[in-house]
Simulated assay, not measured.
Amino acid sequence: MSTAPTRRAILDLYHATLRTSNSFGSYNFREYFVRRTKDTFREIQTAESDPTKVKNLYAAAANELAVLRRSAIVNQLYGGRKLAIESLERRPEDSKTRGDN
């Protein structure tokens, strides 16, 4: 019987999933998958005492990452126009040019 994944493996999977979630071109998909990723890994964190449950949750998250990567590629290929909320997001260099420090 294999053991539960290490803390490092879980963190690596978490960071890979967050990177993939942030690679979506569509704002709504991006925000949804970032939120879902955080919720999934909070669940893994709360199940930390049961190695079998952690192993099952880790395997499910790894499978979701594979699907998420394929979905992100398709979303980037067929992404639509930017939403109004995306143009309202402030970047650090914006405050310098507008003079509203």
Rank of each mutant, 00 (worst) to 15 (best):
3 T>P: 06
4 A>L: 05
5 P>M: 02
5 P>H: 12
10 I>V: 15
11 L>N: 09
12 D>S: 12
14 Y>G: 04
14 Y>I: 02
14 Y>S: 03
15 H>Q: 10
16 A>Q: 15
17 T>F: 08
20 T>V: 07
21 S>K: 00
23 S>A: 14
24 F>T: 04
24 F>Q: 13
30 R>P: 09
31 E>N: 01
32 Y>P: 07
33 F>T: 13
33 F>C: 06
36 R>V: 00
39 D>Y: 12
40 T>M: 14
43 E>G: 13
44 I>F: 11
45 Q>F: 03
48 E>G: 06
48 E>V: 01
49 S>I: 06
50 D>K: 01
51 P>Y: 03
52 T>C: 08
52 T>F: 12
53 K>D: 11
54 V>E: 12
54 V>D: 12
55 K>E: 14
55 K>R: 15
55 K>T: 00
56 N>H: 10
56 N>Q: 10
57 L>V: 02
57 L>Y: 11
61 A>C: 07
62 A>T: 03
62 A>I: 04
64 E>G: 01
65 L>S: 06
65 L>C: 09
65 L>Y: 12
66 A>Y: 08
67 V>Y: 09
68 L>T: 05
68 L>E: 03
69 R>P: 04
70 R>M: 05
71 S>E: 08
72 A>S: 11
73 I>L: 00
73 I>H: 12
73 I>W: 01
74 V>W: 05
74 V>M: 11
76 Q>V: 11
77 L>W: 07
78 Y>G: 03
79 G>V: 15
80 G>D: 15
80 G>T: 15
80 G>V: 10
81 R>S: 15
85 I>P: 01
85 I>A: 05
86 E>F: 05
86 E>R: 00
87 S>E: 04
88 L>Y: 03
90 R>L: 05
93 E>N: 14
